[in-house]
């Protein structure tokens, strides 16, 4: 068999089959693309959360909020006590006005929201920066010591959020895995049934091909290529859907939250996830194609 001619013939017949059964293929393509985009969306959120987790892990700041009853001298005393704690690099005291100004700055165009609030809503705080080499457990120990200082009402630091975020990421990853497995199964079923229908429509043609000397691979390969091409196309469409969704979500968030949630949606879809989506789609299509033709070849 001349291999170049063989490949050309396989591709030619696959594309021709796809065109002749275009409605069926379009339907299967839509189902596959939507299924894969659900997996893609989960992957995107998970990778963004992981990015936020990494950023939080590198954060070395602990904020200790000072009770409203502590006067300026008391605040200065607390500053000194905090600076003396082991592992502390420096301490900054944020008086009520300064804390309020910083928050206003962080809110950007929505800063005016603070105008109607009373003065003590935002408390004075100590911004404690740990030494560069502080490990997460050292950060936790330092936070505990700061919380124990008389006059400190509450401490907040990234590690706490980190823990919550890690749990959330694990949940998202687990859901993505379960949904992914289910969708892989659905995709294989959709592809194999679509191709089975196209094979059924060509049963007579297949029989005639075999009677004039076609090998099993000559008959089977175009259908497998149909599955592969369909899967690859569905993967590519899924990437476009996930990107568009991401852009739409970012746009909506931008309008109401001034970018506060941006980090979660900042990365559209990593190159790895995008390749996995296309490759996975292709692989599922390939498996669907292989599964569907096998038993028809045993006829003769």
């Amino acid at each position: 068999m001349r291999s170049g001619r063989f490949v050309a013939s396989v591709l030619d017949r696959a594309l021709r089959n796809m065109w002749e059964q275009r409605r069926l293929h379009l339907l299967a393509l839509s189902v596959m693309a939507l299924s894969l985009s659900v997996v893609g969306a989960f992957a995107m959120v998970a990778s963004n959360l992981a990015r936020v987790r990494a950023a939080l892990g590198a954060e070395r700041v602990i904020t200790a909020f000072i009770g409203a009853g502590v006067d300026a001298a008391g605040q200065q005393r607390l500053r000194g006590e905090a600076a003396a704690l082991p592992g502390v690099a420096r301490v900054e005291l944020l008086a009520v006005e300064e804390a309020r100004d910083r928050f206003r700055e962080a809110l950007g165009p929505h800063g005016a929201l603070l105008d109607g609030l009373s003065g003590d809503v935002i408390p004075a705080a100590l911004v404690v920066v740990a030494q560069a080499e502080a490990a997460p457990d050292q950060m936790a120990a330092l936070a505990k010591r700061l919380a124990a200082l008389v006059g400190v009402e509450e401490v907040a630091y990234a590690a706490e959020e980190l823990e919550r975020l890690t749990t959330l990421i694990r949940a998202v990853e687990l859901i993505a895995l379960a949904v992914g497995a289910l969708i892989a199964l659905v995709t294989v079923i959709v592809v194999s049934n679509t191709i089975r229908l196209t094979v059924l429509a060509r049963q007579e043609e297949i029989a005639i091909m075999k009677l004039v000397g076609a090998t099993d691979s000559f008959v089977r390969l175009p259908f497998v290529v149909e599955g592969l091409l369909g899967g690859l196309a569905a993967g590519a469409i899924a990437i476009a859907i996930v990107w568009s969704l991401n852009a739409a979500v970012l746009g909506a968030i931008g309008a109401v939250a001034a970018g506060a949630l941006d980090p979660i949606f900042a990365v559209r879809l990593s190159a790895l996830h995008a390749s996995l989506l296309v490759g996975g789609g292709g692989l599922l299509g390939l498996v669907g194609g292989l599964v569907s033709v096998g038993r028809f070849l045993k006829v003769m």
């Binding site: 068999m1 001349r2 001619r5």
Partner: peptide, 9 residues
């Protein structure tokens, strides 16, 4: 078809 299955150019 007879020649296609043989991979004839």
């Amino acid at each position: 078809l007879t020649l296609d299955v043989r991979g004839e150019p």
